[in-house]
Write a protein that binds this DNA or RNA. Sequence first.
DNA 1: GTTAATTATTGACTAATCGTCACGAATTTA
DNA 2: TAAATTCGTGACGATTAGTCAATAATTAAC
Lengths: 264, 264
Amino acid sequence: MSISARKEREFKERENLILRTSFDMLLTEGYMGFTIDKLAKKIDYAKGTVYKHFACKEDIVMKILNEAFKQRIKVLERIKTLDIPERALVMAGTYGMSLYNKLNPNLHRLLQIGNVESIWNKVSQDLKDEHNSMVTRIFDDFELLVQRAVKNKNLELGEHESIDIYFSIICLSMGFSGMLRNTRDAQIPHNVIECLCNSRLVKDPARVLRLAMNTFLDGLNWRPLTGNYDYNALETEVTDTVFSDLKKIVEGETRIEFILDLDI
Amino acid sequence: MSISARKEREFKERENLILRTSFDMLLTEGYMGFTIDKLAKKIDYAKGTVYKHFACKEDIVMKILNEAFKQRIKVLERIKTLDIPERALVMAGTYGMSLYNKLNPNLHRLLQIGNVESIWNKVSQDLKDEHNSMVTRIFDDFELLVQRAVKNKNLELGEHESIDIYFSIICLSMGFSGMLRNTRDAQIPHNVIECLCNSRLVKDPARVLRLAMNTFLDGLNWRPLTGNYDYNALETEVTDTVFSDLKKIVEGETRIEFILDLDI
DNA sequence: GTTAATTATTGACTAATCGTCACGAATTTA
DNA sequence: TAAATTCGTGACGATTAGTCAATAATTAAC
Protein backbone atom coordinates (compact mmCIF):
# COMPACT_ATOMS: atom_id res chain seq x y z
CA MET A 1 0.00 0.00 0.00
CA SER A 2 2.56 2.54 1.09
CA ILE A 3 4.73 1.62 -1.85
CA SER A 4 2.00 2.23 -4.37
CA ALA A 5 1.35 5.53 -2.63
CA ARG A 6 4.97 6.47 -3.17
CA LYS A 7 4.67 5.48 -6.83
CA GLU A 8 1.65 7.64 -7.13
CA ARG A 9 3.40 10.57 -5.53
CA GLU A 10 6.38 10.13 -7.84
CA PHE A 11 4.04 10.03 -10.82
CA LYS A 12 2.38 13.24 -9.67
CA GLU A 13 5.76 14.87 -9.16
CA ARG A 14 6.86 13.92 -12.64
CA GLU A 15 3.66 15.31 -14.07
CA ASN A 16 4.40 18.55 -12.30
CA LEU A 17 7.92 18.50 -13.73
CA ILE A 18 6.49 18.04 -17.22
CA LEU A 19 4.08 20.93 -16.78
CA ARG A 20 6.64 23.24 -15.27
CA THR A 21 9.22 22.50 -17.97
CA SER A 22 6.65 22.79 -20.75
CA PHE A 23 5.47 26.12 -19.40
CA ASP A 24 9.02 27.35 -19.39
CA MET A 25 9.65 26.14 -22.94
CA LEU A 26 6.40 27.65 -24.20
CA LEU A 27 7.32 31.04 -22.81
CA THR A 28 10.92 31.04 -23.95
CA GLU A 29 10.63 29.26 -27.28
CA GLY A 30 6.97 29.66 -28.21
CA TYR A 31 4.51 27.04 -29.29
CA MET A 32 6.48 26.06 -32.38
CA GLY A 33 9.67 25.68 -30.37
CA PHE A 34 7.97 23.45 -27.85
CA THR A 35 8.59 19.88 -28.96
CA ILE A 36 8.12 16.65 -27.08
CA ASP A 37 11.63 15.48 -27.97
CA LYS A 38 13.21 18.57 -26.44
CA LEU A 39 10.92 18.32 -23.44
CA ALA A 40 11.84 14.66 -22.87
CA LYS A 41 15.53 15.49 -23.12
CA LYS A 42 15.17 18.37 -20.66
CA ILE A 43 13.40 16.37 -18.00
CA ASP A 44 15.62 13.36 -18.70
CA TYR A 45 12.86 10.87 -19.42
CA ALA A 46 12.05 9.04 -22.62
CA LYS A 47 9.43 10.39 -24.94
CA GLY A 48 7.16 7.42 -24.27
CA THR A 49 7.07 8.34 -20.60
CA VAL A 50 5.70 11.76 -21.42
CA TYR A 51 2.94 10.09 -23.38
CA LYS A 52 2.05 8.05 -20.29
CA HIS A 53 0.96 11.35 -18.76
CA PHE A 54 -0.62 13.17 -21.68
CA ALA A 55 -2.33 11.92 -24.79
CA CYS A 56 -0.88 14.64 -26.98
CA LYS A 57 1.15 17.80 -27.02
CA GLU A 58 -1.93 19.98 -27.01
CA ASP A 59 -3.15 18.33 -23.80
CA ILE A 60 -0.05 19.56 -22.01
CA VAL A 61 -0.74 23.11 -23.11
CA MET A 62 -4.41 22.91 -22.22
CA LYS A 63 -3.61 21.41 -18.82
CA ILE A 64 -1.41 24.41 -18.07
CA LEU A 65 -4.10 26.79 -19.28
CA ASN A 66 -6.69 25.07 -17.13
CA GLU A 67 -4.50 25.22 -14.04
CA ALA A 68 -3.92 28.92 -14.62
CA PHE A 69 -7.64 29.37 -15.17
CA LYS A 70 -8.34 27.67 -11.83
CA GLN A 71 -6.06 30.18 -10.14
CA ARG A 72 -7.82 33.03 -11.89
CA ILE A 73 -11.17 31.81 -10.64
CA LYS A 74 -9.87 31.48 -7.10
CA VAL A 75 -8.63 35.05 -7.23
CA LEU A 76 -11.91 36.27 -8.67
CA GLU A 77 -13.96 34.44 -6.09
CA ARG A 78 -12.24 36.14 -3.20
CA ILE A 79 -14.44 39.15 -3.82
CA LYS A 80 -17.46 37.14 -2.70
CA THR A 81 -16.54 37.92 0.89
CA LEU A 82 -16.83 41.68 0.28
CA ASP A 83 -19.95 43.52 1.36
CA ILE A 84 -20.04 46.25 -1.28
CA PRO A 85 -22.39 47.21 -4.11
CA GLU A 86 -22.50 44.93 -7.16
CA ARG A 87 -20.72 47.37 -9.40
CA ALA A 88 -17.93 47.72 -6.85
CA LEU A 89 -17.66 43.93 -6.94
CA VAL A 90 -17.13 44.05 -10.69
CA MET A 91 -14.38 46.59 -10.23
CA ALA A 92 -12.83 44.67 -7.33
CA GLY A 93 -12.65 41.64 -9.61
CA THR A 94 -10.94 43.77 -12.25
CA TYR A 95 -8.37 44.96 -9.71
CA GLY A 96 -7.69 41.38 -8.68
CA MET A 97 -7.23 40.31 -12.27
CA SER A 98 -4.85 43.23 -12.87
CA LEU A 99 -2.68 41.99 -10.05
CA TYR A 100 -2.88 38.38 -11.08
CA ASN A 101 -1.90 39.26 -14.65
CA LYS A 102 1.14 41.05 -13.31
CA LEU A 103 2.26 37.90 -11.52
CA ASN A 104 3.04 36.46 -14.88
CA PRO A 105 2.74 38.94 -17.70
CA ASN A 106 3.40 36.21 -20.24
CA LEU A 107 0.65 33.87 -19.20
CA HIS A 108 -2.00 35.33 -21.46
CA ARG A 109 0.18 34.69 -24.50
CA LEU A 110 -0.57 31.04 -23.88
CA LEU A 111 -4.28 31.79 -23.94
CA GLN A 112 -3.95 32.82 -27.57
CA ILE A 113 -2.60 29.36 -28.32
CA GLY A 114 -5.65 27.73 -26.79
CA ASN A 115 -7.85 29.93 -28.94
CA VAL A 116 -6.45 28.60 -32.18
CA GLU A 117 -9.11 26.29 -33.50
CA SER A 118 -6.85 23.61 -34.90
CA ILE A 119 -5.05 23.31 -31.56
CA TRP A 120 -8.24 23.30 -29.51
CA ASN A 121 -9.60 20.53 -31.73
CA LYS A 122 -6.77 18.19 -30.75
CA VAL A 123 -7.31 18.57 -27.01
CA SER A 124 -8.85 15.58 -25.20
CA GLN A 125 -12.51 15.83 -24.36
CA ASP A 126 -12.08 15.80 -20.58
CA LEU A 127 -9.74 18.77 -20.69
CA LYS A 128 -12.13 20.59 -22.98
CA ASP A 129 -14.94 19.82 -20.55
CA GLU A 130 -12.93 21.10 -17.64
CA HIS A 131 -12.18 24.31 -19.52
CA ASN A 132 -15.77 24.76 -20.57
CA SER A 133 -17.14 24.28 -17.09
CA MET A 134 -14.82 26.98 -15.76
CA VAL A 135 -15.91 29.46 -18.41
CA THR A 136 -19.52 28.61 -17.67
CA ARG A 137 -18.90 29.26 -14.01
CA ILE A 138 -17.50 32.72 -14.69
CA PHE A 139 -20.48 33.53 -16.88
CA ASP A 140 -22.90 32.28 -14.22
CA ASP A 141 -21.30 34.37 -11.50
CA PHE A 142 -21.50 37.47 -13.66
CA GLU A 143 -25.11 36.80 -14.55
CA LEU A 144 -26.07 36.57 -10.88
CA LEU A 145 -24.24 39.80 -10.17
CA VAL A 146 -26.09 41.67 -12.91
CA GLN A 147 -29.43 40.27 -11.79
CA ARG A 148 -28.75 41.23 -8.20
CA ALA A 149 -27.88 44.76 -9.28
CA VAL A 150 -31.17 44.98 -11.14
CA LYS A 151 -33.08 43.60 -8.17
CA ASN A 152 -31.40 46.11 -5.85
CA LYS A 153 -32.29 48.91 -8.26
CA ASN A 154 -28.69 49.84 -8.97
CA LEU A 155 -29.09 49.06 -12.64
CA GLU A 156 -31.82 49.17 -15.24
CA LEU A 157 -31.48 46.87 -18.22
CA GLY A 158 -33.22 49.18 -20.69
CA GLU A 159 -32.43 48.08 -24.22
CA HIS A 160 -30.02 45.46 -22.89
CA GLU A 161 -30.52 41.92 -21.79
CA SER A 162 -28.40 40.81 -18.85
CA ILE A 163 -26.32 38.59 -21.10
CA ASP A 164 -25.44 41.63 -23.22
CA ILE A 165 -24.00 43.34 -20.20
CA TYR A 166 -21.83 40.64 -18.75
CA PHE A 167 -20.84 39.49 -22.18
CA SER A 168 -19.61 42.99 -22.96
CA ILE A 169 -17.69 43.15 -19.70
CA ILE A 170 -15.95 39.89 -20.47
CA CYS A 171 -15.23 40.96 -24.05
CA LEU A 172 -13.70 44.17 -22.80
CA SER A 173 -11.32 42.35 -20.47
CA MET A 174 -10.51 39.75 -23.08
CA GLY A 175 -9.86 42.44 -25.66
CA PHE A 176 -7.35 44.11 -23.40
CA SER A 177 -5.56 40.98 -22.32
CA GLY A 178 -5.49 39.77 -25.89
CA MET A 179 -3.94 42.93 -27.17
CA LEU A 180 -1.15 43.44 -24.75
CA ARG A 181 1.05 41.95 -22.20
CA ASN A 182 2.41 43.91 -19.36
CA THR A 183 5.28 46.08 -20.45
CA ARG A 184 7.15 45.75 -17.18
CA ASP A 185 9.43 43.09 -18.61
CA ALA A 186 11.42 44.82 -21.29
CA GLN A 187 11.31 42.05 -23.84
CA ILE A 188 11.12 42.56 -27.56
CA PRO A 189 7.53 43.39 -28.44
CA HIS A 190 6.10 40.56 -30.47
CA ASN A 191 3.62 42.45 -32.55
CA VAL A 192 2.69 45.88 -33.68
CA ILE A 193 0.15 46.43 -30.92
CA GLU A 194 2.90 45.98 -28.39
CA CYS A 195 5.14 48.33 -30.35
CA LEU A 196 2.41 50.90 -30.28
CA CYS A 197 1.91 50.44 -26.55
CA ASN A 198 5.51 51.38 -26.14
CA SER A 199 5.77 54.10 -28.74
CA ARG A 200 2.51 55.76 -27.78
CA LEU A 201 3.18 55.48 -24.10
CA VAL A 202 0.48 53.14 -22.91
CA LYS A 203 2.57 52.68 -19.85
CA ASP A 204 0.07 50.76 -17.79
CA PRO A 205 -2.47 48.92 -19.96
CA ALA A 206 -4.14 47.50 -16.87
CA ARG A 207 -4.90 51.02 -15.70
CA VAL A 208 -6.47 51.82 -19.05
CA LEU A 209 -8.63 48.71 -18.74
CA ARG A 210 -9.78 49.80 -15.29
CA LEU A 211 -10.65 53.23 -16.66
CA ALA A 212 -12.46 51.71 -19.63
CA MET A 213 -14.40 49.37 -17.38
CA ASN A 214 -15.56 52.21 -15.17
CA THR A 215 -16.45 54.25 -18.23
CA PHE A 216 -18.50 51.41 -19.63
CA LEU A 217 -20.32 50.89 -16.33
CA ASP A 218 -21.00 54.63 -16.12
CA GLY A 219 -22.45 54.42 -19.62
CA LEU A 220 -24.78 51.70 -18.38
CA ASN A 221 -25.73 54.00 -15.53
CA TRP A 222 -24.86 51.18 -13.16
CA ARG A 223 -24.79 52.77 -9.71
CA PRO A 224 -22.88 53.90 -7.77
CA LEU A 225 -21.44 55.99 -10.59
CA THR A 226 -17.83 57.11 -10.65
CA GLY A 227 -18.78 60.47 -9.15
CA ASN A 228 -20.59 58.91 -6.21
CA TYR A 229 -18.15 56.26 -5.07
CA ASP A 230 -14.42 56.31 -4.56
CA TYR A 231 -13.28 53.50 -6.81
CA ASN A 232 -9.65 54.49 -6.38
CA ALA A 233 -10.04 54.02 -2.64
CA LEU A 234 -11.69 50.68 -3.32
CA GLU A 235 -8.70 49.64 -5.40
CA THR A 236 -6.29 50.55 -2.64
CA GLU A 237 -8.43 48.79 -0.10
CA VAL A 238 -8.92 45.47 -1.89
CA THR A 239 -5.29 45.48 -2.99
CA ASP A 240 -4.27 45.73 0.65
CA THR A 241 -6.76 43.24 2.02
CA VAL A 242 -8.18 40.42 -0.09
CA PHE A 243 -5.36 40.66 -2.65
CA SER A 244 -2.54 41.63 -0.32
CA ASP A 245 -0.58 38.43 -1.00
CA LEU A 246 -0.66 39.12 -4.73
CA LYS A 247 0.43 42.68 -4.17
CA LYS A 248 3.43 41.52 -2.15
CA ILE A 249 4.51 39.18 -4.92
CA VAL A 250 4.05 41.84 -7.60
CA GLU A 251 6.08 44.29 -5.57
CA GLY A 252 8.85 41.74 -5.34
CA GLU A 253 8.67 41.03 -1.65
CA THR A 254 8.11 37.37 -2.43
CA ARG A 255 9.75 35.45 -5.24
CA ILE A 256 7.95 32.79 -7.20
CA GLU A 257 9.58 30.29 -9.49
CA PHE A 258 6.60 28.79 -11.21
CA ILE A 259 3.26 30.51 -11.31
CA LEU A 260 1.31 27.29 -10.98
CA ASP A 261 3.12 26.36 -7.78
CA LEU A 262 1.54 29.40 -6.23
CA ASP A 263 -0.92 28.50 -3.52
CA ILE A 264 -3.72 30.94 -4.20
CA MET B 1 8.06 42.58 -73.87
CA SER B 2 4.51 41.41 -74.27
CA ILE B 3 5.65 37.88 -73.56
CA SER B 4 7.25 38.76 -70.27
CA ALA B 5 4.10 40.67 -69.41
CA ARG B 6 2.09 37.50 -69.97
CA LYS B 7 4.52 35.58 -67.77
CA GLU B 8 4.08 38.15 -65.12
CA ARG B 9 0.32 37.96 -65.34
CA GLU B 10 0.42 34.18 -65.13
CA PHE B 11 2.65 34.41 -62.09
CA LYS B 12 0.21 36.81 -60.47
CA GLU B 13 -2.69 34.51 -61.29
CA ARG B 14 -0.94 31.55 -59.76
CA GLU B 15 -0.19 33.55 -56.65
CA ASN B 16 -3.88 34.32 -56.41
CA LEU B 17 -4.65 30.63 -56.84
CA ILE B 18 -2.28 29.81 -54.00
CA LEU B 19 -3.88 32.38 -51.73
CA ARG B 20 -7.41 31.40 -52.58
CA THR B 21 -6.73 27.70 -52.09
CA SER B 22 -4.81 28.30 -48.86
CA PHE B 23 -7.62 30.43 -47.52
CA ASP B 24 -10.05 27.66 -48.27
CA MET B 25 -7.86 25.04 -46.62
CA LEU B 26 -7.29 27.19 -43.56
CA LEU B 27 -11.01 27.62 -43.06
CA THR B 28 -11.99 24.02 -43.69
CA GLU B 29 -9.05 22.20 -42.14
CA GLY B 30 -7.54 24.74 -39.76
CA TYR B 31 -3.96 25.84 -39.46
CA MET B 32 -2.70 22.37 -38.57
CA GLY B 33 -4.47 20.83 -41.52
CA PHE B 34 -2.97 23.37 -43.89
CA THR B 35 0.17 21.79 -45.32
CA ILE B 36 2.23 22.82 -48.31
CA ASP B 37 2.15 19.29 -49.74
CA LYS B 38 -1.63 19.24 -49.74
CA LEU B 39 -1.75 22.76 -51.13
CA ALA B 40 0.64 21.85 -53.97
CA LYS B 41 -1.40 18.79 -54.83
CA LYS B 42 -4.61 20.80 -54.85
CA ILE B 43 -3.36 23.50 -57.16
CA ASP B 44 -1.48 20.91 -59.25
CA TYR B 45 1.95 22.47 -58.98
CA ALA B 46 5.07 21.13 -57.34
CA LYS B 47 5.97 22.15 -53.85
CA GLY B 48 9.04 24.02 -55.06
CA THR B 49 6.83 26.26 -57.17
CA VAL B 50 4.90 27.35 -54.11
CA TYR B 51 8.17 28.34 -52.50
CA LYS B 52 8.96 30.54 -55.50
CA HIS B 53 6.04 32.68 -54.37
CA PHE B 54 6.36 32.59 -50.60
CA ALA B 55 9.36 32.11 -48.35
CA CYS B 56 7.45 30.04 -45.83
CA LYS B 57 4.05 28.75 -44.86
CA GLU B 58 3.48 31.57 -42.41
CA ASP B 59 4.00 34.14 -45.15
CA ILE B 60 1.03 32.72 -47.04
CA VAL B 61 -1.16 33.12 -43.99
CA MET B 62 0.08 36.62 -43.26
CA LYS B 63 -0.38 37.66 -46.89
CA ILE B 64 -4.03 36.62 -46.65
CA LEU B 65 -4.43 38.46 -43.37
CA ASN B 66 -2.87 41.59 -44.84
CA GLU B 67 -5.12 41.50 -47.89
CA ALA B 68 -8.16 41.16 -45.64
CA PHE B 69 -6.83 43.98 -43.49
CA LYS B 70 -6.52 46.19 -46.57
CA GLN B 71 -10.18 45.56 -47.33
CA ARG B 72 -11.12 46.39 -43.76
CA ILE B 73 -9.30 49.69 -43.98
CA LYS B 74 -10.98 50.53 -47.27
CA VAL B 75 -14.36 49.88 -45.69
CA LEU B 76 -13.48 51.94 -42.64
CA GLU B 77 -12.21 54.85 -44.70
CA ARG B 78 -15.47 55.22 -46.55
CA ILE B 79 -16.84 57.07 -43.52
CA LYS B 80 -14.45 59.93 -44.23
CA THR B 81 -16.93 61.26 -46.76
CA LEU B 82 -19.63 61.63 -44.12
CA ASP B 83 -20.35 65.02 -42.61
CA ILE B 84 -21.50 63.97 -39.15
CA PRO B 85 -20.20 64.42 -35.58
CA GLU B 86 -17.03 62.55 -34.60
CA ARG B 87 -18.82 60.14 -32.34
CA ALA B 88 -21.25 59.31 -35.14
CA LEU B 89 -18.21 58.57 -37.30
CA VAL B 90 -16.99 56.06 -34.72
CA MET B 91 -20.38 54.37 -34.77
CA ALA B 92 -20.58 54.47 -38.57
CA GLY B 93 -17.24 52.67 -38.68
CA THR B 94 -18.59 50.08 -36.28
CA TYR B 95 -21.62 49.50 -38.50
CA GLY B 96 -19.37 49.08 -41.51
CA MET B 97 -17.20 46.58 -39.70
CA SER B 98 -20.30 44.65 -38.61
CA LEU B 99 -21.30 44.28 -42.22
CA TYR B 100 -17.82 43.43 -43.39
CA ASN B 101 -17.48 40.75 -40.73
CA LYS B 102 -20.71 39.20 -41.94
CA LEU B 103 -19.28 38.88 -45.44
CA ASN B 104 -17.03 36.23 -44.11
CA PRO B 105 -17.83 35.19 -40.58
CA ASN B 106 -14.79 32.92 -40.50
CA LEU B 107 -12.21 35.47 -41.42
CA HIS B 108 -11.43 36.56 -37.91
CA ARG B 109 -10.55 33.02 -36.94
CA LEU B 110 -7.49 33.52 -39.11
CA LEU B 111 -6.59 36.63 -37.13
CA GLN B 112 -6.08 34.47 -34.07
CA ILE B 113 -3.48 32.52 -36.00
CA GLY B 114 -1.55 35.69 -36.78
CA ASN B 115 -1.62 36.58 -33.11
CA VAL B 116 0.27 33.47 -32.06
CA GLU B 117 3.75 34.66 -31.29
CA SER B 118 5.64 31.68 -32.69
CA ILE B 119 3.82 32.02 -36.01
CA TRP B 120 4.25 35.78 -36.20
CA ASN B 121 7.98 35.32 -35.58
CA LYS B 122 8.39 33.26 -38.75
CA VAL B 123 6.76 35.82 -41.02
CA SER B 124 9.09 37.74 -43.37
CA GLN B 125 9.99 41.24 -42.37
CA ASP B 126 8.29 42.97 -45.31
CA LEU B 127 4.97 41.35 -44.53
CA LYS B 128 5.36 42.29 -40.88
CA ASP B 129 6.12 45.85 -41.94
CA GLU B 130 3.08 45.96 -44.17
CA HIS B 131 0.92 44.71 -41.32
CA ASN B 132 2.38 47.14 -38.84
CA SER B 133 1.90 50.13 -41.09
CA MET B 134 -1.78 49.28 -41.48
CA VAL B 135 -2.31 49.02 -37.74
CA THR B 136 -0.49 52.30 -37.29
CA ARG B 137 -2.77 53.90 -39.84
CA ILE B 138 -5.88 52.77 -37.98
CA PHE B 139 -4.49 54.11 -34.74
CA ASP B 140 -3.59 57.43 -36.36
CA ASP B 141 -7.06 57.87 -37.81
CA PHE B 142 -8.64 57.22 -34.44
CA GLU B 143 -6.30 59.61 -32.70
CA LEU B 144 -7.22 62.41 -35.10
CA LEU B 145 -10.90 61.68 -34.55
CA VAL B 146 -10.57 61.92 -30.79
CA GLN B 147 -8.56 65.11 -31.00
CA ARG B 148 -11.09 66.66 -33.36
CA ALA B 149 -13.89 65.78 -30.96
CA VAL B 150 -12.01 67.50 -28.15
CA LYS B 151 -11.34 70.54 -30.30
CA ASN B 152 -15.00 70.74 -31.25
CA LYS B 153 -15.96 70.48 -27.60
CA ASN B 154 -17.87 67.24 -28.03
CA LEU B 155 -15.58 65.42 -25.66
CA GLU B 156 -13.52 66.24 -22.59
CA LEU B 157 -10.55 64.02 -21.85
CA GLY B 158 -10.75 64.36 -18.07
CA GLU B 159 -8.74 61.60 -16.46
CA HIS B 160 -8.08 60.05 -19.85
CA GLU B 161 -5.41 60.65 -22.40
CA SER B 162 -6.56 60.40 -26.01
CA ILE B 163 -4.61 57.17 -26.48
CA ASP B 164 -6.61 55.64 -23.62
CA ILE B 165 -9.83 56.34 -25.44
CA TYR B 166 -9.04 55.03 -28.87
CA PHE B 167 -7.08 52.16 -27.44
CA SER B 168 -10.13 51.15 -25.42
CA ILE B 169 -12.37 51.41 -28.46
CA ILE B 170 -10.07 49.16 -30.45
CA CYS B 171 -9.77 46.70 -27.56
CA LEU B 172 -13.53 46.52 -27.29
CA SER B 173 -13.93 45.64 -30.96
CA MET B 174 -11.03 43.21 -30.85
CA GLY B 175 -12.46 41.56 -27.75
CA PHE B 176 -15.74 40.96 -29.49
CA SER B 177 -14.34 39.71 -32.74
CA GLY B 178 -11.90 37.52 -30.86
CA MET B 179 -14.59 35.92 -28.80
CA LEU B 180 -17.11 34.99 -31.41
CA ARG B 181 -17.80 34.46 -34.98
CA ASN B 182 -21.12 35.15 -36.49
CA THR B 183 -23.60 32.45 -35.65
CA ARG B 184 -25.40 32.68 -38.97
CA ASP B 185 -23.51 29.73 -40.37
CA ALA B 186 -24.62 26.78 -38.31
CA GLN B 187 -21.23 25.14 -37.98
CA ILE B 188 -20.04 23.31 -34.92
CA PRO B 189 -18.94 25.89 -32.34
CA HIS B 190 -15.23 25.61 -31.91
CA ASN B 191 -14.93 26.70 -28.32
CA VAL B 192 -16.91 27.22 -25.20
CA ILE B 193 -17.49 30.90 -25.84
CA GLU B 194 -19.25 30.01 -29.04
CA CYS B 195 -21.27 27.34 -27.24
CA LEU B 196 -22.34 29.95 -24.72
CA CYS B 197 -23.29 32.36 -27.45
CA ASN B 198 -25.66 29.74 -28.72
CA SER B 199 -26.92 28.39 -25.42
CA ARG B 200 -27.39 31.81 -23.87
CA LEU B 201 -28.96 33.25 -26.95
CA VAL B 202 -26.46 35.86 -28.01
CA LYS B 203 -28.16 35.80 -31.34
CA ASP B 204 -26.42 38.76 -32.86
CA PRO B 205 -23.04 39.45 -31.28
CA ALA B 206 -22.46 42.37 -33.63
CA ARG B 207 -25.56 44.05 -32.23
CA VAL B 208 -24.20 43.59 -28.70
CA LEU B 209 -20.93 45.16 -29.76
CA ARG B 210 -22.78 48.15 -31.20
CA LEU B 211 -24.69 48.52 -27.94
CA ALA B 212 -21.51 48.18 -25.90
CA MET B 213 -19.73 50.74 -28.04
CA ASN B 214 -22.52 53.26 -27.58
CA THR B 215 -22.60 52.54 -23.86
CA PHE B 216 -18.87 53.12 -23.60
CA LEU B 217 -19.07 56.38 -25.54
CA ASP B 218 -21.95 57.51 -23.32
CA GLY B 219 -19.78 56.72 -20.32
CA LEU B 220 -17.12 59.01 -21.77
CA ASN B 221 -19.82 61.66 -22.17
CA TRP B 222 -18.80 61.92 -25.82
CA ARG B 223 -21.52 63.97 -27.45
CA PRO B 224 -24.00 63.61 -29.02
CA LEU B 225 -25.16 61.12 -26.40
CA THR B 226 -27.47 58.24 -27.21
CA GLY B 227 -30.48 60.25 -26.04
CA ASN B 228 -29.69 63.20 -28.29
CA TYR B 229 -28.93 61.50 -31.59
CA ASP B 230 -30.66 58.73 -33.46
CA TYR B 231 -27.88 56.19 -33.85
CA ASN B 232 -30.30 53.58 -35.09
CA ALA B 233 -31.29 55.89 -37.90
CA LEU B 234 -27.61 56.47 -38.60
CA GLU B 235 -27.08 52.75 -38.88
CA THR B 236 -29.93 52.41 -41.36
CA GLU B 237 -28.66 55.36 -43.33
CA VAL B 238 -25.01 54.38 -43.65
CA THR B 239 -26.01 50.78 -44.35
CA ASP B 240 -28.10 51.98 -47.24
CA THR B 241 -25.64 54.50 -48.60
CA VAL B 242 -21.88 54.13 -48.07
CA PHE B 243 -22.15 50.44 -47.24
CA SER B 244 -25.02 49.52 -49.55
CA ASP B 245 -22.89 47.15 -51.63
CA LEU B 246 -21.89 45.22 -48.50
CA LYS B 247 -25.51 45.07 -47.37
CA LYS B 248 -26.54 43.57 -50.69
CA ILE B 249 -23.92 40.88 -50.44
CA VAL B 250 -24.83 40.08 -46.84
CA GLU B 251 -28.47 39.84 -47.75
CA GLY B 252 -27.60 37.38 -50.46
CA GLU B 253 -28.42 39.48 -53.47
CA THR B 254 -24.87 39.05 -54.71
CA ARG B 255 -22.80 35.91 -54.39
CA ILE B 256 -19.08 36.00 -53.69
CA GLU B 257 -16.74 33.07 -54.09
CA PHE B 258 -13.62 34.36 -52.43
CA ILE B 259 -13.67 37.29 -50.06
CA LEU B 260 -10.38 38.68 -51.30
CA ASP B 261 -11.63 38.85 -54.88
CA LEU B 262 -14.14 41.38 -53.68
CA ASP B 263 -13.53 44.81 -55.14
CA ILE B 264 -14.16 47.03 -52.16
C1' DG C 1 15.26 27.50 -88.50
C1' DT C 2 18.63 25.86 -85.38
C1' DT C 3 21.30 26.18 -81.36
C1' DA C 4 22.89 28.25 -77.15
C1' DA C 5 21.61 30.65 -72.96
C1' DT C 6 18.44 31.58 -69.69
C1' DT C 7 14.57 30.85 -66.92
C1' DA C 8 10.90 28.02 -64.82
C1' DT C 9 9.40 23.78 -62.75
C1' DT C 10 9.95 19.66 -60.57
C1' DG C 11 9.97 16.11 -56.94
C1' DA C 12 13.44 13.32 -54.55
C1' DC C 13 15.85 14.37 -50.47
C1' DT C 14 17.15 16.01 -45.56
C1' DA C 15 16.06 17.06 -41.10
C1' DA C 16 12.55 17.49 -37.66
C1' DT C 17 8.63 16.11 -35.53
C1' DC C 18 4.51 13.47 -33.47
C1' DG C 19 2.87 9.56 -31.57
C1' DT C 20 3.26 4.15 -31.17
C1' DC C 21 4.60 -0.10 -29.42
C1' DA C 22 7.30 -4.27 -28.68
C1' DC C 23 10.80 -5.24 -25.62
C1' DG C 24 13.52 -5.24 -21.63
C1' DA C 25 13.97 -3.49 -16.73
C1' DA C 26 12.04 -2.88 -12.33
C1' DT C 27 8.78 -3.99 -9.02
C1' DT C 28 5.25 -6.51 -6.80
C1' DT C 29 2.98 -10.77 -5.71
C1' DA C 30 2.81 -15.74 -4.85
C1' DT D 1 13.03 -17.54 -5.35
C1' DA D 2 10.04 -17.52 -9.30
C1' DA D 3 6.13 -15.80 -11.73
C1' DA D 4 3.27 -11.99 -12.81
C1' DT D 5 2.67 -7.39 -13.39
C1' DT D 6 3.76 -2.75 -14.07
C1' DC D 7 6.94 0.78 -15.81
C1' DG D 8 10.10 3.02 -18.92
C1' DT D 9 12.43 3.05 -23.25
C1' DG D 10 13.96 4.61 -27.73
C1' DA D 11 13.82 2.68 -32.41
C1' DC D 12 10.34 3.11 -35.78
C1' DG D 13 6.60 4.66 -39.19
C1' DA D 14 4.28 8.45 -40.89
C1' DT D 15 4.11 13.47 -41.91
C1' DT D 16 5.89 17.72 -42.71
C1' DA D 17 8.78 22.15 -43.97
C1' DG D 18 11.93 23.64 -46.84
C1' DT D 19 16.11 22.76 -50.34
C1' DC D 20 18.33 22.05 -54.55
C1' DA D 21 20.25 19.55 -58.45
C1' DA D 22 18.30 18.00 -62.54
C1' DT D 23 15.08 18.55 -66.12
C1' DA D 24 11.83 21.02 -69.10
C1' DA D 25 10.36 25.18 -71.26
C1' DT D 26 11.20 29.48 -73.02
C1' DT D 27 13.87 33.15 -74.97
C1' DA D 28 17.81 35.06 -77.45
C1' DA D 29 21.33 34.76 -80.88
C1' DC D 30 22.79 33.87 -85.25
